[in-house]
Design a protein around this nucleic acid. Structure first.
Lengths: 80, 80
DNA sequence: TACTTTTTTATTGTTTTACAATAAATTTTT
DNA sequence: AAAAATTTATTGTAAAACAATAAAAAAGTA
């Protein structure tokens, strides 16, 4: 996979924590955490919409495409 | 909803049709058409990834957040 | 106009996954 | 240490991606 989620970055910029954002996005803390940490395999446009609205940003601020070369040597990124 | 899909725009820029793109993205023509025409309610990151790779673009080129005021007066956008 | 290609729409079925709800563990902050 | 915030995990349900297929509609070409 080479789509990474920069939700944490935008949250930091807006000074919003999970608790606050979860309320505005109307999603549970737990599931928003999953999203934030790139554990989600898909996203509903309605959810993306709510996030963009709450953070006043664009999808491009949250989703980023990077071509994957192997840099898996460092640590591990995708553990089972 | 206020997330719109500009996949058609990027396809036009890259001069790629559905047939060609569907092959590269490894998704059926029919389903890609649904995506392209904003009929999808969600998108898998794997699919978004494949599209970005095939079109050499970013998610932000395809997904756009617009706050919805009512401009439904013109035609109809979302029919049932 | 007929023929071809592309695109759209529809239908059915399977599999995946979002998300809720909940709880516990972990980390961070005070 | 205590409190607050975050992460991780589990179970269940509803939703939706996507495949496969087919057919209608639109666009392009001879």
């Amino acid at each position: 996979m080479a789509i990474i989620i920069n939700l944490d970055v935008m949250m930091a910029k807006r000074k919003k924590g999970l608790t606050e954002l979860a309320g505005e996005v109307d999603i549970t803390l737990a599931n928003l955490s999953i999203l934030k940490n790139n554990k989600a395999k898909a996203i509903r446009l309605g959810t993306l919409n709510a996030i963009c609205k709450a953070l006043d940003c664009q999808p491009g601020d949250i989703l980023q495409y990077v071509e994957d070369e192997e840099e898996t040597t460092e640590k591990e990124d995708g553990k089972k």
